[in-house]
C-alpha cells in the first residue's frame, strides 16, 4: 500500500512540474529560438523570409498547399477567373522532352518587386524582412501591380466579402496576394500554412525559413543543391526558390 502511495505522490509531483513546464515553456522556448519580435517592434532587415520548393517532392494532383492557404486566409477556394487564388498548382510540360513537373506558384516576394515600384500610393510595399504585402487601407484598386507582376501572383477582390478572418484583413476593390503567412511570422511561428500542410501530407516539398541565417535549414539547402528563381532573367531576386526545374 505504502509503495503505491509513494508512487502516486511521485507521479503527482512530477506531473505538476511537467504541467507547469508545459504551460510556461512554449512562450519562452519560442521567444528564444524563433527570434520572434515583441509586438510593436518593426520587422528586421537582418531576416529575409523565403521558401524553397522542391518540385521533385511535389506530387502532381496534390492540392494540399492550396487548400491549406485558402483555409488559413479565409479564401473561398473558388477557381473562377474572378476568384482570389493566392497559391496555385501549375503543371509544366517541357516542350522538348515532354517531362512533367508540378509545382506551387505564389507571390515570389522579390527583393526588387515590380508591384511595389508601380503602385501609385505605396500600398504595395516590402517589409524589411522581405515580405511583400498590400496595405488594404491605402490600396485604391487600380490593379497596376497586377499588370506589373511577372508571376500573375495577385488577385483582385471582385465581390463583397463576408466572414473574414481577424488575422487576415481583406477588402472588396483591393488587391491581395500571398503574405507568406505574415500573421504567423509575427507571432513567432516558424512555418507557413502551405509548408505545414505539405509536410503533413508527407511530401516536404515546401521549406520556409530565414534565407539570411546561414544556419537555417533553408540556407543550408540553398547552399547545397542547385536552385532556380522563376524568371531569373528579370533580376528581381525572389525570396521563393525552386529546386528541380
Amino acid at each position: 500500500m505504502s509503495d503505491t502511495n509513494l508512487d502516486r505522490r511521485q507521479f503527482l509531483g512530477r506531473a505538476s512540474v511537467a504541467l507547469a513546464g508545459l504551460a510556461i515553456a512554449p512562450g519562452m522556448l519560442l521567444y528564444e529560438f524563433s527570434q520572434a519580435r515583441p509586438l510593436g517592434e518593426a520587422a528586421s532587415g537582418k531576416v529575409r523570409w523565403g521558401m524553397l520548393i522542391d518540385t521533385n517532392q511535389c506530387e502532381s494532383g496534390c492540392n494540399d498547399c492550396v487548400t491549406a492557404c485558402n483555409e488559413e486566409n479565409g479564401l473561398s477556394g473558388g477557381t473562377a477567373p474572378t476568384d482570389a487564388q493566392w497559391i496555385r498548382k501549375v503543371e509544366l510540360k517541357d516542350t522538348g522532352s515532354g517531362r512533367i513537373t508540378s509545382l506551387p506558384v505564389m507571390c515570389q516576394h522579390c527583393a526588387s518587386p515590380p508591384c511595389v515600384d508601380v503602385c501609385p500610393t505605396g500600398a504595395s510595399f516590402k517589409r524589411a524582412d522581405g515580405i511583400v504585402l498590400v496595405d488594404k487601407h491605402i490600396c485604391i484598386g487600380c490593379r497596376y501591380c497586377m499588370m506589373a507582376c511577372p508571376y500573375k501572383a495577385r488577385s483582385f477582390v471582385h465581390e463583397t466579402l463576408t466572414d473574414q478572418l481577424t488575422d487576415v484583413p481583406r477588402g472588396k476593390g483591393t488587391v491581395e496576394s500571398c503574405t507568406l503567412c505574415v500573421h504567423r511570422v509575427d507571432k513567432g511561428q516558424e512555418t507557413t500554412a502551405c509548408a505545414e500542410a505539405c509536410a503533413r501530407g508527407g511530401h516536404h516539398a515546401i521549406l520556409f525559413g530565414n534565407l539570411n541565417d546561414p544556419d537555417s535549414e533553408i540556407s543550408k539547402r540553398v547552399r547545397a543543391v542547385a536552385t532556380t528563381q522563376i524568371r531569373a532573367d528579370l533580376g528581381l531576386n525572389t525570396g521563393v526558390r525552386y529546386q528541380g526545374i
Binding site: 477557381t79 487564388q85 496555385r88 498548382k89 501549375v90 503543371e91 509544366l92 510540360k93 517541357d94 516542350t95 522538348g96 513537373t101 506558384v105 511577372p150 508571376y151 500573375k152 522563376i230 524568371r231 526545374i245
Partner: peptide
C-alpha cells in the same frame, strides 16, 4: 512565366 514549358493551372 516558364519559358520553354507548356503551363496549365486553375
Amino acid at each position: 512565366i516558364f519559358p520553354g514549358f507548356e503551363a496549365s493551372s486553375s
